[in-house]
């Protein structure tokens, strides 16, 4: 029985996914990053724990909201049985319909979230109706924050937020929200947050610039070339000889 339910739900979700990719033009492939052949490209999705984390929150909220609806309905029914009976159908609808939508949206959100890391940049795709793709080069990153709540720790996931220079009025300290500030890339719900952080921080360490639009060339030609040094030596010797 449960297998059949699983089969049917899989089938329904597959159909929905087909509608999304076909009619609503949701890209099914992970985003690509332009890169040279020698570069390593890593594209991944949030960990499966992220889906479980979202579902756990979903069930908690479902229980609380539906319990409230049930209690209100019972109170009305006890006082005015006629009104309570009339409200029964809308109450059941309100209790069930949004849940299905939210449940499907959670799965779609999980399936449409992609993170791509290359040797010099990262790209994040997120969104169902409005698809948002963010590209940031490691050169421009200012700081990397890893956040993990108690629930997230239980599910073994964490959020990595990557911030670039620039302000955002609405943003509060330590609460990077990608919807409010766009100077931020959020890698949400990954199991190996520390590895990603270390990876990005090591790339950051290799960069010599301040990450604020200084030219690459400035750091590249900091020292004198061997030819220039040789000429300088010659000049010194010439002056010493006179």
């Amino acid at each position: 029985m449960s297998q059949q339910v699983e089969q049917v739900s899989k089938w329904i979700y597959g159909g929905l996914w087909g509608v999304m990719t076909g009619w609503f033009r949701v890209p099914a492939q992970p985003p690509a990053l332009p890169s040279s052949a020698s570069e390593s490209i890593e594209s991944f999705k949030p960990a499966i724990g992220f889906l479980k984390y979202m579902k756990f929150q979903f069930w908690v909220w479902l229980f609380l909201i539906d319990l409230t609806i049930l209690i209100v309905e019972l109170i009305i029914f006890a006082n005015e049985p006629g009104v309570g009976l009339a409200l029964l159908v809308p109450a059941v609808f309100v209790a069930i319909a949004p849940d299905i939508v939210v449940y499907l949206a959670m799965h779609l959100r999980y399936d449409t979230t992609w993170y791509v890391l290359s040797d010099r940049s990262l790209r994040i795709r997120r969104g169902i109706w409005i698809i948002h793709e963010t590209t940031i080069t490691f050169e421009n990153i200012q700081n990397v924050t890893v956040r993990q709540g108690p629930l997230q720790r239980w599910f073994g996931i964490a959020d990595v937020s990557i911030e670039t220079a620039g302000g955002g009025g609405q943003q509060q300290q330590g609460q990077g929200n990608p919807w409010q500030s766009s100077h931020c890339g959020l890698i949400e719900g990954v199991a190996d947050a520390n590895r990603i952080r270390d990876l990005i921080m090591s790339r950051l360490g290799e960069s010599q610039s301040a990450g604020l639009g200084d030219e690459d060339e400035a750091s590249r030609s900091k020292s004198w070339s061997t030819e220039q040094v040789a000429t300088l030596r010659e000049i010194r010797d010439l002056i010493a000889a006179t």
Partner: peptide, 17 residues
Amino acid sequence: YRRIQDIHLTRNIVQRW
């Protein structure tokens, strides 16, 4: 170009169509 910090590509459903 050198001062670009990040690039965002956004498509809503109408734009995708």
